[in-house]
């Protein structure tokens, strides 16, 4: 680990979002993650960086892959990991959330990973806690480790992010993944496009430095990376789009639409996928898909984030 510690010190106590990170911060996290990939590919995957430390996964919203990814990342770094899943309904009001924070604080954790259905809830907790806080997704606001793992995946496959055309497609309106990715990719010099029906595009999105397309075919032209987003079932029956059938016709990624992107374009999806709604199986499992690699990079990026925050823990 001495070589990791020799790298530039990560200047933040928490990772609450991509917003506020400099390109240097982002790249240093990605460099750390490259090392973590190597660690994870060894037979002996355990490091001692967080030995004796306590990591709490505090998930107010159900999650399988993000929570297990953080759990594994913490364990591979030697931390004691506790998973807390809190029923969303019982912790909706600010007071209760703060009470929860104070209770946890008293248990003296070193890092808390938080997911919450409300945008800004993780920031509120961070103000109340003495330990490091990682945002594992707050409402439709940010999901920074997802954007970092996406960036790592792109960087490893394309060499660099600068100058790439990245098309983010689907439910931009409700997506924290989209917001974090837009900020990160733009910071590293990519040209970001968002593609979706007007009903799934947030007001003022064009002022976030992206090109907006309502016609997927046009938006995919010349793209290097096609990043699909999940469309939640309750949103595809007339509330925001008429039906999954119609959505797939116009915004589902199939081979024919993918052929409009560059021939070497790569396909990503944060998961879990709705096959036949936003993505066709032939594409999801095809040669251009990076979807499984993204999951592997997820663990590495989360190890990197935990390591970076550990630099700020007392007595380290």
């Amino acid at each position: 680990m001495s070589e990791l510690l020799s790298k530039p010190r990560f200047p933040h106590r928490h990772l609450l979002g991509i917003e506020g990170l400099s390109p240097i911060d982002i790249n240093s996290l990605l460099d750390l993650a490259e090392d973590a990939v190597e660690v994870s590919r060894q037979i002996e995957k355990k490091r001692a960086t967080l030995r004796g430390r306590t990591l709490i996964n505090l998930f107010f919203e159900a999650s399988t892959r993000t929570q297990s990814s953080f759990e594994l990342a913490g364990k591979r770094l030697g931390a004691d990991v506790m998973n807390m899943s809190v029923a969303t309904s019982s912790v909706k009001k600010g007071e209760t959330l703060i009470d929860t924070a104070m209770t946890l604080n008293a248990m003296r954790p070193d890092i808390i990973v938080v997911r919450h259905a409300q945008a800004g809830a993780v920031h509120l907790l961070a103000k109340m806690l003495d330990c490091g806080v990682v945002n594992a997704g707050d409402g439709a606001h940010e999901h920074p480790t997802q954007a970092l793992l996406d960036a790592l995946t792109i960087r490893r496959n394309k060499g660099s992010i600068s100058g790439l055309i990245v098309a983010i497609c689907g439910d931009i309106l409700h997506s924290r993944v989209a917001r974090s990715n837009i900020i990160l990719l733009a910071a590293l010099g990519a040209r970001v496009r968002v593609i979706g029906p007007s009903t799934l595009l947030p007001n003022g999105i064009e002022r976030m430095g992206v090109e907006v397309f309502r016609d997927m075919r046009k938006g995919l032209e010349g793209a290097d990376i096609v990043m699909m987003l999940r469309l939640q079932r309750e949103r595809m029956s007339g509330g925001f789009v008429p039906s999954s059938k119609e959505y797939f016709r116009f915004f589902g990624l199939d081979k024919e639409k993918l052929s409009l992107a560059k021939p070497d374009a790569l396909v990503m999806h944060p998961g879990p996928m709705n096959r036949g709604v936003e993505i066709d199986s032939a594409v999801a499992d095809g040669p251009q898909s990076l979807i499984r690699e993204q999951v592997e990079m997820g663990v590495a990026v989360r190890m990197a984030v935990l390591e970076a925050l550990a630099q700020h823990l007392p007595n380290s």
């Binding site: 009903t199 007339g238 509330g239 008429p242 119609e246 016709r249």
Partner: peptide, 15 residues
């Protein structure tokens, strides 16, 4: 414009 003319869900305008 809406499914079943119910005024609740958007019809399949594209299709």
């Amino acid at each position: 414009l809406t499914k079943g003319l119910q005024g609740l869900e958007i019809a399949e305008i594209g299709l």
